[in-house]
């Protein structure tokens, strides 16, 4: 999702956000999220104890006594999306404009720079970063179902380096071998199926934890390199 709205909002608030346009709301890897948010989830978790009286992290944990909405899938969520809360006029205005939350807007909101409302301000720059890192990791939306994920054609079209793929495949060869077995053979798979499966593991749409882990640190280019190598040995 890309937001047409918050830039406008930020401009009208006069917040001098030199928008880095780092609005990639698809991140799921905690380390990448930490790098993007510039914080530490563990530190944010400690700080979040000050927030948890009013905010649950997930919808199922929300309590009626809490003054604020749950934060489930907050990054990429529409402003004031959870019904039943007394949102400030400023938030209602953003809601009317169809704004969605992303990091820089949330950071500005926590800083007290986005809106003149009564939401508590978090004074420290690093504290804000840590809290947002923690919240983003802790409120990641559930992974897509297997088969739901569509690998974009431009990603499928990446030309992989088979020599690099051969090196990367040595990691696979510790478990996968040619022929049938209790761990499936992967050397003769259809290229598009292989690439899609690896993207599904990376997006956690497939369940095997070992494969999720292996796929988590493969880039699009590395998945393409593996596919190119396996195709080359057919």
């Amino acid at each position: 999702m890309r937001l047409p709205v918050l830039s406008a909002v930020l401009a009208c608030c006069g917040a001098s956000l030199a928008m880095s346009q780092s609005l990639d709301l698809t991140l799921t890897d905690p380390d990448q999220i930490a790098a993007e948010c510039g914080g530490t989830a563990a530190a944010g978790e400690v700080l979040f104890t000050s927030c948890s009286a009013c905010h649950a992290l997930q919808p199922e944990d929300a309590r009626p006594t809490q003054a604020g909405p749950h934060l489930g899938a907050l990054f990429g969520r529409e402003v004031a999306a959870v019904d039943g809360y007394a949102y400030s006029p400023g938030l209602r205005q953003l809601q009317a404009e169809g704004a969605i939350w992303e990091r820089e807007a949330l950071h500005a909101y926590l800083q007290g720079d986005l809106l003149p409302d009564t939401h508590p301000v978090v004074a420290g720059e690093q504290d804000r970063r840590d809290i947002l890192t923690f919240v983003r990791v802790a409120t990641l939306p559930p992974p897509p179902a297997r088969g739901e994920l569509v690998v974009p054609p431009e990603v499928l079209a990446i030309e992989g380096d088979p020599a690099y793929g051969e090196y990367l495949a040595s990691e696979c060869a510790g478990c996968h071998r040619s022929g049938s077995g209790n761990v499936p053979a992967i050397d003769l798979l259809d290229g598009e199926y292989f690439i899609t499966a690896m993207h599904e593991y990376r997006a956690r749409a497939r369940t095997n934890e070992t494969m999720r882990l292996i796929a988590a640190r493969l880039t699009d280019e590395e998945i393409a390199a593996l596919a190119a190598y396996y195709l080359s040995i057919e």
Binding site: G174, C175, H176, G181, N182, V183, E209, T210, R212, L213
Partner: peptide, 26 residues
């Protein structure tokens, strides 16, 4: 990652089958 306590019998059986595949692979 680590396996979780209270996992289903199916998952535990699949994990064992996977280990046999790993032995053959390594």
């Amino acid at each position: 990652f680590i396996s979780q306590t209270g996992e289903s019998a199916e998952l535990r059986a699949a994990t064992y089958q996977e280990s046999i595949g790993w032995y053959d692979g390594i």
